[in-house]
């Protein structure tokens, strides 16, 4: 299936990616066109699956076998909160801080 630019841009927005980030305006369009062509090629390859007869086949989302059951409801210490907070790009006291949400 050929992928048009609108679909590529919409998909990028869903993924919070800017496909022309840091590119000069004159280079941006070329980069987008190239990406759309590339995506079309790859998704075109994916389209071969439509020819596979999967009538009545259950999807297999994971090959896990005899997995572990749920755990008991008992508190247990994990990572130290301060170790986690220390990785924050920006914090205020014990909070993670981000720009204000409108």
């Amino acid at each position: 299936m050929p992928i048009d630019l609108t679909t590529v841009l919409h998909t990028a927005e869903l993924a919070r990616l800017d496909l022309t980030y840091g590119l000069a305006p004159d280079k941006a369009q070329a980069a987008l066109d190239k990406l759309a062509a590339e995506m079309s090629g790859i998704i075109g390859h994916f389209d071969q699956l439509s020819a596979v007869d999967t009538e009545g086949v259950e999807p297999l989302y994971s090959p896990m076998l005899e997995p572990l059951g749920p755990r008991e409801d008992c508190p247990r210490a994990g990572s130290a909160p301060e170790d986690l907070l220390s990785q924050a790009p920006e914090r205020l006291g014990h909070f993670f801080a981000v720009p204000k949400i409108l």
């Binding site: 749920p70 755990r71 008991e72 014990h94 909070f95």
Partner: peptide, 23 residues
Amino acid sequence: EPNSHICEICSGQPGALPRLNAR
């Protein structure tokens, strides 16, 4: 206190995995 009951799982650290609570 804020962020005093967090670990690698509920703070979404790389590599952490969920384990379901039976209760």
